[in-house]
Structures are given as structure tokens and as C-alpha cells.
């Protein structure tokens, strides 16, 4: 009988699931991993809920790093940010494969293996999303000088992009708010960043912006419209590269102009 380990939909949750599934000694072919609240329940299998345990997750990630290399660690982190329902099991299979090989760093290259390929594809998806978010995120300056950004990404990319901004805007206080997940990354000037639940932040959305904020927004909007060459106008191309879903929070498209192209 198959035992299904149901884990929390987060990197730590999945990694704890990997630990528990392995530790259960049921045999790799008899266990499966699943993230919470997905799909219909199956007959003839046993469900076992897994409680997130940071220590176990940390152990697994460290092992992946040591035995399978930095690339595998990154692939696991990025793939876990996606919304695919097969991701937890694919990550488990990748780790099983990697730890069974003499040279575990080769595991991520075995693209014939469906699980490895899936992890690679998910990694790419999440990486692509995170990379776009690095560019499309827009900060607004609040009255107290704090920079505040909102986003609604389909995948949980906030922890993936926060280190980039922590380095870039090292001397600034900033907050990145993931409205979809109710999470926020908060950074203190000259210090580190941390992830937190963002219930208390909903007031920030309406808080007034600093005096120069409006001015810079206007300048940026003017720049964006004058930099386009009229003879080469190509809204299709623009929309391929910058899909509409990003635009509501982007300054140059503005709240009222969110669904229209720049002109």
C-alpha cells in the first residue's frame, strides 16, 4: 500500500516531507509526497500529515548542498516556489536519485528522468518569474522615507528576490509586500531582511506617499512614453515581454492606465 505524505506547501514543508518519507523506511517506491489540499483523495493508500520542522528541513537542504551541489540546491528551492501539484514528489525523487549516485552533482543533468526534468522545468519557471520581478517591481516612497513595493506573483518568489534587493538597496529601509500570500519581506537600512506575515501592513497601501514621490512618478511616465519610437510601434511585442498581469503595480502604467499600452 502506498503511503502519501502530505506536507505544507512551502520549501520547509516539502523538505520536512522528504525527511519523514525517507525516515519512515517504507521503501521509496511505496511512498509519495503531496502538498496540502490538493486533488481528490485516493483509495487504497494511507495519508500521513507532516508537520513543518525547520531543523529537519535544514538537514535535508544541507545534505542536498553537500552531496548534490549548489545547482541542485538552487533547483530544489526554486521548484518548491512553483504551484505544480507534482512538485513535492519530483523533488523527493530527485533527491533519492542524487543520493544514490556516486557523484550526486550529476543528478540534475539526468533529464531523461521525468522527475528530474520536472524539477528542472519548475526551476526555470520560478527563476523566470523571479527574474522578471527583479525588474518589474516598483517601490514607492512613503512619507517616512521607507520604500514600499507591492506584487502579486503566481509563485512564491518573495524569498528568492529579497536577497537581491537587500544588497542593492542596502542603505534603505524597504518593504516588499506579496499581496497574494499575505507575506512581506522587511529590510532595515544597513542590516538584514526577514520574512513576515503581512496582516499589519494593509494600512500601508493607503498611507500617503512622500512629497517627491508624485514628481518622480510623473518624470518616469514621461520618460517611458518619450523613449518609444513611433515608427516601430509594436504593442504585441511589448505585451509578450511585459504581460498585463504585471502592470497594475507598475508606475509607468499607473492604476488608471493598467490595461492600456503606453503611447
Amino acid at each position: 500500500m502506498t503511503t502519501i505524505f502530505v506536507c505544507e506547501d512551502s520549501l520547509d514543508g516539502i523538505l520536512t516531507g522528504v525527511y519523514e518519507a525517507w525516515d519512515s523506511r517504507l521503501g521509496h517506491e511505496n511512498v509519495r509526497l503531496q502538498t496540502e489540499a490538493e486533488g481528490t483523495l485516493e483509495l487504497f493508500c494511507q495519508y500521513r500529515p507532516v508537520r513543518r520542522d525547520l531543523e529537519k528541513a535544514e538537514k535535508v537542504l544541507r545534505t542536498v548542498r553537500r552531496r548534490m551541489g549548489e545547482k541542485a540546491r538552487e533547483a530544489v528551492c526554486y521548484a518548491a516556489a512553483c504551484t505544480d501539484e507534482r512538485k513535492a514528489d519530483a523533488i523527493y525523487r530527485l533527491i533519492v536519485l542524487g543520493l544514490s549516485m556516486a557523484d550526486g552533482t550529476k543528478a540534475v543533468d539526468c533529464l531523461q528522468n521525468p522527475a528530474v526534468l520536472l524539477v528542472e522545468k519548475l526551476r526555470y519557471k520560478a527563476w523566470h518569474e523571479a527574474e522578471r520581478m527583479l525588474g518589474f517591481l516598483r517601490f514607492e516612497e512613503l512619507e517616512n522615507g521607507v520604500l514600499y513595493a507591492r506584487m502579486e506573483p503566481p509563485y512564491a518568489v518573495l524569498p528568492l528576490i529579497a536577497p537581491h534587493f537587500a544588497d542593492r538597496l542596502y542603505q534603505e529601509n524597504w518593504i516588499i509586500h506579496d499581496l497574494r500570500r499575505g507575506q512581506a519581506a522587511i529590510h532595515r537600512a544597513g542590516g538584514g531582511w526577514f520574512l513576515t506575515e503581512a496582516e499589519a501592513l494593509s494600512a500601508l497601501e493607503k498611507e500617503s506617499r512622500s512629497g517627491t514621490e508624485q514628481e518622480f512618478q510623473k518624470l518616469w511616465q514621461a520618460f517611458c512614453s518619450s523613449i518609444a519610437i513611433e515608427e516601430r510601434r509594436n504593442p504585441r511585442c511589448q505585451q509578450n515581454l511585459l504581460p498585463l498581469r504585471f502592470r497594475p503595480y507598475m508606475t509607468e502604467f499607473g492604476a488608471d492606465r493598467s490595461r492600456t499600452v503606453l503611447n
Binding site: 518609444a228 511589448q238 515581454l241 503606453l262
Partner: peptide
Amino acid sequence: GIGNCFDAGICHSFAADGR
């Protein structure tokens, strides 16, 4: 101060001509 550089470059927006 402020700022770093990302090896692969980052696109921050796309103009109406798709550039």
C-alpha cells in the same frame, strides 16, 4: 551607497515599440 550589478542584466520595463 546604493546599487549593485547583475551579470545577466535586468529589463525594467518595455516601451510601446517592444524595446
